[in-house]
Amino acid sequence: MADNKYLVGVFDDEDEVLHAVGEVRHSGVKIHEVYTPFAIHGLDRALGYDRPRMGIAAFLFGITGTCCALLLTFWTMGIDWPINVGGKNFFPWPTNVPIIFELTVLLASFGMSFTFFVMEGMGPTAKPVIFDVRSTDDKFIMAIDLSKNKLSELEITDILKESGASEVNVKEV
């Protein structure tokens, strides 16, 4: 049996859904999520999302990559296998810059990818909830969790219709 009951509003245009998000939130309805076939500029602000913190994770993973690369190059060229070539330094800084840069980028990109998948719950065993299959083609879907709203189903349906929804459906997930 289904656990939650969602009201799904289907919109035809990105401007309509962006305007509708503001109207629906202004009327006191909590929106679960808006699904779009492509990114809409300003939708995250309209939904009231905070600024993403992925940059912090990227910086931390990048610093980790830089430190690991410095340690790797220093250890291999200065301690583990020092080779004296013409009396040059055991740890030549300019020759290690490409290695340090590449390891920084590698750890930052893998770390950000891993962090994104973990934070969004997109692991190998995750099963996505698809409210309407047309959301990947040409429709814009607004899902509203009825258990988290004080207004009734009919009131929210009227708000969605007034804000430009072409159809409103009920989906149990």
Rank of each mutant, 00 (worst) to 15 (best):
F131D: 01
I31G: 03
V85S: 14
S27E: 00
L151Q: 15
Y35G: 04
L107H: 05
E14Y: 03
N84R: 15
T95E: 12
I159K: 01
D138S: 15
V17N: 04
G28A: 13
L146T: 03
L107R: 03
D138A: 15
H32L: 05
I156H: 11
D80Y: 08
D15P: 09
V170D: 06
K5V: 10
H19D: 15
V10R: 02
H19A: 15
G62C: 00
L43M: 03
F116G: 13
M122K: 07
S135H: 15
I130D: 09
I40V: 10
D158Y: 07
P94D: 07
N4Y: 04
D158N: 10
T125M: 14
L71N: 01
V168D: 00
K30R: 13
G62I: 04
P52F: 09
I156D: 09
S147A: 09
A126I: 14
F61N: 03
P128F: 03
T64C: 05
N4H: 04
V173Y: 01
G9R: 00
G164D: 08
H41W: 12
E153K: 05
T95C: 12
L103H: 05
E162W: 01
I31M: 01
K88S: 14
P37Q: 12
D50I: 10
N149K: 02
D50A: 12
A69D: 07
D15Y: 10
V34G: 04
A57W: 08
K88Q: 14
G62S: 05
S166M: 06
A126P: 05
N84Y: 14
L107E: 06
I130A: 13
E155F: 02
K161V: 01
A126R: 04
P92L: 13
P128G: 06
F38M: 09
A57V: 02
V8Y: 08
V10C: 05
T157G: 07
V85D: 14
T115Q: 09
E102Q: 08
I130P: 07
G78F: 07
I40T: 04
V97H: 10
F101Q: 01
A69E: 03
A165I: 05
V170Q: 02
S147K: 01
F74V: 11
T125I: 13
G9W: 06
E153G: 07
A57D: 04
